[in-house]
Design a protein around this nucleic acid. Sequence first.
DNA 1: TCTATCGTTATTGTCAACAATCCATAGATT
DNA 2: AATCTATGGATTGTTGACAATAACGATAGA
Lengths: 226, 226
Amino acid sequence: MSEAATQTYTRADEAFDCLQTAIVKGDLAPGEKIGEVELCSRFNLTRGPLREALGRLESRGLLVRRPHAGVKVVSVSAEELLELYRIRETMEGLAARQAAERMTDEEIADLQATLDSHEKMIEEAQGQAYYQAEGDYDFHHRIATGSRNTKLAQMLLGDLYYMVRMYRYRLSTSSGRPHMALGEHRRIAEAIAQRDGELAEFLMKRHINAARKNIEKRIQNGTAGV
Amino acid sequence: MSEAATQTYTRADEAFDCLQTAIVKGDLAPGEKIGEVELCSRFNLTRGPLREALGRLESRGLLVRRPHAGVKVVSVSAEELLELYRIRETMEGLAARQAAERMTDEEIADLQATLDSHEKMIEEAQGQAYYQAEGDYDFHHRIATGSRNTKLAQMLLGDLYYMVRMYRYRLSTSSGRPHMALGEHRRIAEAIAQRDGELAEFLMKRHINAARKNIEKRIQNGTAGV
DNA sequence: TCTATCGTTATTGTCAACAATCCATAGATT
DNA sequence: AATCTATGGATTGTTGACAATAACGATAGA
């Protein structure tokens, strides 16, 4: 959640984190038009740092801001959410390939250990979708950073994942997939451990593709009013 | 260069554009540590809008900012530049595929007309690398927007291209490639016109891969002190 | 009754002063 | 002589007030 050792935690950073989690968790509903002073009083901030945070959020695509007309949380349509997964498919495929080539042995061991704890979490917290989502996020996070591709990790972690997580809170992860996803994670980790970049890329793409199809199906069933 | 009809052009937008072009053109050298007041006097701005622009630039990865320690333009290593092209390869491959499926007939006609004018520009301005670079940018820009994938276009146009252009100004485009690149562009456009997404994706990936190898070679030859 | 124009009002954009923090230089100590 | 510490200066972060702008409502005309 928190970045590395930010030497000094400035007010603008605080505002940024507050707003970001608020948007991701849905405390600020998509499409909701909200004023700056309102936000200030709600998060105990002044307008300076707030505006700076707003600018950062805007360039990350989490909210739109029309001059003199206020800010509103971005509302992504169902089609756009699926497009997001298409992007993830290619980018994370690349990340997996590079991770297989570049992760240290320790990192790989950690990755596999992480999967063990995920398995326990799923068994214990049956249906507790939240922990599953966090575990999934953790897995993909490790691979993104493991790619040693600075910009790639930055784009995945800074841009895409926040939007994906934002919609996880509404379309809480589907009931059947956790076990299946864990198995797919295992196979990906295996491929990385064997330093088989091509296979890791293939498996990762298929993994995300499956997740996309799953969402697609649920949307068509009318489960979600995205 | 300029985005769509920004209803009101605010001071912060001005600052953002100024700084961005300054960074891209190299007026602000990479690694250069520069103070806020210095920037203000240089671009006739006040610190408010400037800081907002700084925040946006930072989250786009064009500069880094340590609290109380000033901002400095990001300096990308040769390896990172090559990594950038790996990202482009996958993302623009996707963009080309989706563009083949979704661009309107008019857009495709425009795209091909654009290539004609590019050809003229190359012939007329022999060795004028600048125009070639702009033409190349134009081509890729059209395909990114033609993908009808909002987030994909945003990431390509907002994040990657600025960094790529930034290094184009130092590693001015190689002498031999313009004609070759134009031919590759032609074939990609052809595939899009035939609505062959798979082929368009393949050709685009190969096109960017070739560009990457070209840069790689030039770096090894010691032509560029990135 | 509907539409268009105008004025008000509230919200955002901008500015300049204040406070907090870090960097560098100079001094003292080991 | 080298290193650690402390103080001064400069720079950034923050705050509150001021000005510009667009949305909203009211009024008049069709």
